[in-house]
């Protein structure tokens, strides 16, 4: 099934600059419907009222981290099937294991490039041009 590039994508990061970078990279990949949240709790509120096809989230944020957000999403019947990609500088194997156990769909280590983002998105959404 073709990937719907008109889907709403929620990006979550406490660094405004990183939100801007990811938004620009998504735009170049053809995803223009992008919303932003600056921590997990803000993201959760947006997810509960919106209709999102993908979550791309940082880990290290306050007050709610990306891992806590992931757990909340996976525990919520309405949200649990949304693909969740963690984009983070946390690169220890224990972090990856914890994220995987919490139900992460894929994991990108910062710094990353557009090709990595595209590859990881394809792996959770299906191939797209």
């Amino acid at each position: 099934m073709a990937v719907d590039k008109n889907m709403n994508v929620l990006i979550v990061d406490d660094y405004k600059t990183m939100l801007r970078i990811i938004r620009n990279l998504l735009k170049q990949l053809g995803f223009n419907n992008v919303d932003e949240a600056t921590d997990g709790s803000m993201a959760l509120q947006m997810l509960r009222v919106g209709n999102y096809g993908l979550i791309i989230s940082d880990w290290n944020m306050e007050p709610m981290t990306g891992l806590q957000l992931l757990r909340e999403v996976r525990a919520d019947a309405k949200l649990k099937s949304i693909p969740f990609i963690m984009v983070t500088a946390e690169s220890k194997s224990e972090n990856v294991i914890a994220a995987k156990e919490a139900g992460v769909s894929n994991y990108i280590v910062k710094p990353f490039n557009a090709e990595t983002l595209k590859t990881k998105m394809s792996s959770v959404l299906g191939d797209f041009a």
Partner: peptide, 20 residues
Amino acid sequence: MTEITTRIFEACTFQDITGQ
């Protein structure tokens, strides 16, 4: 040009890492 601006955006991720 899009390829070049993509490289610029990618390079800008240094700020996040440096900041952290």
